[in-house]
């Protein structure tokens, strides 16, 4: 990574998912490419879910952060956000740090093994309430030990 790209990458750590504020773009694994030339910055991201309304907010936040902070470190002020569909985004790209942050926030991160723990009491005794939760990326579970309902970030 050259210096400018590194600076952009650092600034983008401030941009978080508006619906899951503990996850940054980096944690979500949506940043595909950063290109900085003399006149503009091009950030390429992968959309999570096709209809996810948070994507548009994140795109706007990328532009806002880079416009606001970028000039201080001498970055160009023209910002372009491009989306790249393939390869399709997968929850495998969520970082370990991101998964830990999700669990601490009360959302069970995607589990490839299929083992789902209650983020409140870490019990394995859980049941599915609904395949869909408060957003497209989550399903709703309930812990049968502590009885708390919780969100599960689906494998995708």
């Amino acid at each position: 990574m050259n210096g400018n790209v590194q600076q952009v990458y650092e600034l983008l750590k401030q941009v978080t998912d508006p619906e899951i504020p503990v996850l940054s773009l980096e944690d979500l694994g949506v940043i595909r490419d950063i290109d900085v030339n003399d006149s503009e910055i091009i950030v390429t991201i992968s959309p999570t879910y096709s209809g996810c309304p948070a994507m548009e907010v994140m795109e706007q936040d990328i532009v806002d952060v880079l416009k606001k902070e970028g000039h201080r470190v001498g970055l160009p002020s023209n910002i372009r956000v491009e989306t790249q569909l393939s390869p399709a985004w997968t929850t495998d790209w969520i970082t370990e740090k991101g998964k830990k942050a999700l669990f601490e926030y009360g959302i069970m991160p995607p589990s490839k093994s299929g083992e789902i723990l209650c983020p409140q009491c870490e019990s394995k005794q859980v049941e599915l309430i609904s395949q869909f939760g408060s957003t497209a990326c989550k399903a709703l579970y309930r812990c049968t030990d502590c009885l708390e309902p919780f969100d599960y970030f689906k494998c995708h």
Binding site: S50, G51, C52, P53, A136
Partner: peptide, 8 residues
Amino acid sequence: NTCLDIIG
């Protein structure tokens, strides 16, 4: 939610 995916 299904609707949202399909509209996407």
